[in-house]
Amino acid sequence: MKRHLISAADLTRDDAVLILDTAEEMARFADRPIKKLPTLRGRTIVNLFFEDSTRTRISFEAAAKRLSADVINFSAKGSSVSKGESLKDTALTLEAMGADGVVIRHGDSGAPHRLATSGWIGGSVINAGDGTHEHPTQALLDAFTMRRRLVGEEGAALDGKRITIVGDILHSRVARSNVHLLSTLGAHVTLVAPPTLLPIGVDSWPCEVSYDLDAVLTKSDAVMMLRVQRERMNAAFFPTEREYARRYGLDGERMARMPEDAIVMHPGPMNRGMEITAEVADSPRCTAVEQVANGVSIRMAVMYLLLGGSEPALSRDDTARTEENN
C-alpha cells in the first residue's frame, strides 16, 4: 500500500480487499468489553478539519483512539487559519509537533494531495474529503457495508454487483470515490442524476449514466442516495425541490420495486423528504446507521495499514524519534 490515502483510484483491488478484510477484524474488536488496542501507542494523529463535519471527524477520532494513538483535533474555526495562516504554515506547525498521520478535510479539491506531495510533512496523509474531489474512506466503508450485506464473505470483492448512485453527482466527492473503488472491486456502477448535476467528463468514468431512476431501480443490488448539497447550490440545477424529489427521490413505492435483497444506502446527513422519504430511511433495508458504525472499523483498518508498520515511519529522516516512542 502507498504511504498516503488521497484517492480511491490509487487503491489496487488487492489493497482494497486487504482494507475490507482488516476492517472485518477491527469490527470484531468492537464487541469486546475493552475496545482498545495498543497498536499505535506513541503515535500522534492530527485531525485537520478546514470544513465542518461531525460524523467523519468523530469517526476518525474514535478509530485513532481505539488504536491508542494520541489525537489532536484541529478545526479551522477559532484557529490561526481564521487569522489568515496558509496551509503550508499550518503543515509546518504540525510537522514541528511530530504528527505521524494527518487526517485532512478541506473545502478545496487537491488540498490533501498538496499536503502529501509538498514535502512539508513526513507523516501519512489521509484524505477525509476534499472539495468535490474525493472521500476515499467513505467509499471504503460503503464497499464494506455492501460486501457484508450482498456478499457476506471475507476475502471477496463485489464482482458483478449492480450499484446505483443517485443524486448530486456533480458536487459529490462520495460518488467520485465510490465509482473508482467499486469498479476496482468488480461492481457495475450506474449513476442516475439530472443532466445538470452530472460533471463534465463523466463519460470517461468507469460507469454508466442514466437519467431514469425507475428503469435502473429494478436492476440494482444497492441504491445509494446522495444528499442534495444545498450549501453548494448557488446556481439553479433543477426547477423545484418537489420536482427533484418526484423524479430522483426514493420513496416507499419505488423501494418496493427494487429486488428483494437490495439495500438502500445513504452517506448522511440525510434530507428527509428530499432525496429520501422517512419511510425508506427508517426501513430495515436502509443501511445509513450501519454505515456509520462500519466507518470506525474502516478508518481503524486504514490507520493500521498506513501507520502500524515501519514503512511510513522509516522513510522519515528522524527515525530516532519514533523509535524512542516505541
Binding site: L18, G308, G309, S310, E311
Partner: peptide, 8 residues
C-alpha cells in the same frame, strides 16, 4: 510491528 510493513 515497527520493524516491518504492517501485517495482515
Amino acid at each position: 510491528l515497527r520493524l516491518g510493513p504492517a501485517r495482515a
